[in-house]
């Protein structure tokens, strides 16, 4: 395989403004569904597999497991690409759903979730992310740290429109996988408050994201 070619694809994508970048991946995924082209698959893999792995590392501390499931997710991308419809969801959304479902299916046979007390106000998670990247080597450190910093800012940016409690509820739902009752126990607030907070957050997310759909 020509990895330089796909590396270049990724570089170009990274330089595009977010909406164009998103459209770029939508197009590649659509075309993968029609043509089953391995080069396009490799491009999707190189961009999304490390992100899917990072997402799954929120739920399992076992690096090898997160990596295996990330590969499984991308295998599903290959198998199901013909079902992808760019008019209904962005490629990143579609792949998020595949990764989410694979994790849910696995979790069912055993409660594998690890206890996570990190929240996004805490710099600990940023620190760990940097360490993970640094330990593995091969990547220019300042660049990796920069990437982690930028991504963290982006997550914070996504949640910035929400009041603190709602942001925390949304974070716990998406990145800690916690149910209403688990969140209520975590934060020591009534389950009714969790639901009303998430209901308000839903409206805000709908306003900020829903318009493009």
């Amino acid at each position: 395989m020509d990895s330089r070619l796909t590396g270049a694809t990724q570089e170009i994508a990274a330089k595009l403004p977010p909406s164009t970048e998103s459209a770029h991946w939508n197009q590649i995924l659509t075309s993968l569904g029609q043509q089953h082209d391995k080069q396009q698959f490799i491009a999707l893999y190189e961009y999304f597999a490390p992100k899917v792995k990072a997402y799954l590392l929120r739920f399992t501390s076992v690096d090898a497991q997160a990596e295996e499931l990330a590969q499984e997710t991308l295998l599903q991308v290959w198998r199901k690409a013909h079902l992808y419809d760019a008019s209904k969801a962005a490629a990143s959304t579609w792949i998020f759903c595949l990764a989410r479902n694979i994790w849910i299916d696995l979790q069912r046979s055993a409660k594998q979730r690890i206890e996570q007390n990190l929240d996004f106000y805490d710099d600990l998670s940023l620190l760990q992310e940097q360490q993970t990247v640094q330990e593995s080597g091969g990547i220019d450190e300042p660049e990796a740290a920069n990437l982690a910093q930028r991504s963290k800012q982006q997550i914070a940016e996504l949640l910035r429109g929400l009041p603190a409690l709602q942001a925390q509820l949304v974070y716990k739902s998406y990145l800690e996988g916690k149910s209403h009752s688990e969140i209520a126990a975590d934060l020591e607030i009534p389950i009714g408050s969790v639901k009303s907070g998430l209901r308000l957050a839903f409206k805000k997310l709908q306003q900020s994201l829903g318009v493009s759909l």
Partner: peptide, 25 residues
């Protein structure tokens, strides 16, 4: 409605720091 909030999941996936893959493709 679900598609609308799944889109937020997609945004998170793009914003999340990339982990390093150890295995080869």
């Amino acid at each position: 409605k679900v598609a609308q909030v799944e889109a937020f999941g997609g945004e998170l996936l793009q914003a999340i720091p990339s982990a390093v893959m150890h295995r080869s493709i």
